[in-house]
Design a protein around this nucleic acid. Sequence first.
DNA 1: CATACTAATTAAAGAAGTTTAATAAGTGGA
DNA 2: TCCACTTATTAAACTTCTTTAATTAGTATG
Lengths: 333, 333
Amino acid sequence: MGSMIRHQICLQLYKHVESTKAEIAQNTDISFPTISKAIDAMVEAGEVRLVGLGKSSGGRRPSTYSLNAAFMTGAAVCLERDFSFYQLFDYEGQLIFQKKLPGVLEAGPELLQKQLQTIQQANSNLRVIVLGVPAPVKNGQVFHIQGYERFRDFNFQTFCEQQFGLSAKVENDMNATVSGYYDRGNYKQDFASVVYLYFGKNGPGAGIIVNGSVVRGSSSFSGEISFLPLSDVRNFEQLLTEALSTKDEQLRKRMLLESVSRFVVTFAATVNPHTIVCSNTELTAGDLIEIRKLCEEMIPADYLPELVSSDWEQDYFYGLQQLTIAKMFKEDE
Amino acid sequence: MGSMIRHQICLQLYKHVESTKAEIAQNTDISFPTISKAIDAMVEAGEVRLVGLGKSSGGRRPSTYSLNAAFMTGAAVCLERDFSFYQLFDYEGQLIFQKKLPGVLEAGPELLQKQLQTIQQANSNLRVIVLGVPAPVKNGQVFHIQGYERFRDFNFQTFCEQQFGLSAKVENDMNATVSGYYDRGNYKQDFASVVYLYFGKNGPGAGIIVNGSVVRGSSSFSGEISFLPLSDVRNFEQLLTEALSTKDEQLRKRMLLESVSRFVVTFAATVNPHTIVCSNTELTAGDLIEIRKLCEEMIPADYLPELVSSDWEQDYFYGLQQLTIAKMFKEDE
DNA sequence: CATACTAATTAAAGAAGTTTAATAAGTGGA
DNA sequence: TCCACTTATTAAACTTCTTTAATTAGTATG
């Protein structure tokens, strides 16, 4: 129970930056004395900082607290074929440093080790690392990774933990991306469902959140939508490549929109999500309107999700950032 | 917290029929004294019954307890077009009475009221009712119900609560069915995913469980798989009707299996469930093997779920039974 | 600048569990 | 049948949080 209280306090202070004990007690449904004692202990430990006094509403002014940015740092690492992107966050969740380095997936673990060493040496306070990788992940280990032989069945988590003594977490890229989008979309109901569609280098992929939690599937293969049988003879991936390789601009667009609309209907007729997000590099707002029209020819409008376009890289990075911060707040687990 | 303890005790006693206080404490991770006091109170209240003494393992023999069957009864009601099926369960979960009556969906609420009156009058102890209906349900209310005008947007829950003073719950038929199947399948991981496919009178429907909980969707339209765009010009429903209306036995089967295999791949490539269940009235075990083969032409075998056939009505009824028992154990909510 | 008031903090009492110790109720063999 | 032993049950001490009361530190106004 105690650790849950600490965690709640961290979340509140992260969310509101600066709060009084009373506010935190209010927002968490934990009693004032409990919060008060926990915060005193956290100040003692250097995790929380007394900032100053809040404004008065007629009586004594309350002390305000915030997270101690210097308590520790966490790294979010995005591993792509062509680059590795490192971001360092302080305990308040602020970006304190970022760097793009060469991709390691083709080179192998040695290069990753080197890069991580550099990062760690520059940051004595580094405790936590979160890695995003373009492959299925299970228990910190990737598998079925496409084309990166050096990392076949590589366990990133134990690698980071043992080589660097860090608390580590590994997440699939699309799962991190939906999480990122989901965290920002302020859904009224606590357990919404969102599907994130992305056209990657190795065909399309999706990240899926149902009832508020990421869907990983029985064998961590969720979201491998390339294989969707959306036409008599072609699957989703083939439909897309066919569309994208069409010369005629008009026709190309038409084929693309039609494929995506079939994708949308597929989800509308199964998990019936609140939102489907598309990467805005491929589809404009106008396209989405067109897609919706096409969908309505296949399924009643009531069934259709909200269609949204968003910036993939931004959502992905944001997802990794949130995961990193969450990991700092509960180093264990 | 206190109500959670009571609930846990009920679940254990339902599962093991007869237990000692020590066994329950063991299985629930609640301390012995707490269990002991709670059980004493429940015996006092007539909810639990002291049965006798367990066998000795060298020392004093423990008292054993079980649920008091007479504490209350709950009704599971399956409303179909052609019949209403009423089942009464005692507090131990035993069936004490069942009856098939004429269907009410076309007739209207008056007939339902009459039938319920009969049931209630024969059972003074009736406290809880669970209804299964072939339509989307939200907050006890059906909507978009097909062809039963008398029940358009009818709120079954408030109807039962107000007319009969019962604690009521309403569930969509396919959701109850997957729940029923899921409860029986002893999944190792706590949060498995299962899809239940059924060919109903109004086209195919599916019940979906992801990460251990029923998927209802943003507008309670989950599982409306008729609309799946599985071919260039036909959706899943159309493919099925086309198949089923084909004269040639051989060809008919082939078309059916092919459609279903596309359905299976659709789920394998999205939520990647552990199991897909088909009604055994349409598909034999041999058919499932054939379907698997067809699937493997579309997607790697690793991605495919276990394919199982099962008795729909049995799973549905079992699901309603479990919901009824669960509802008795927590009348509120 | 003193006094009445308001709100923050601290302290004490209470509730609800858990852990540990004590007691009661059997079992089984000499 | 008695006694050593095992196990169930009950009681007591302790944790941890909440609720309620008391105290303290300010604010604001005449």
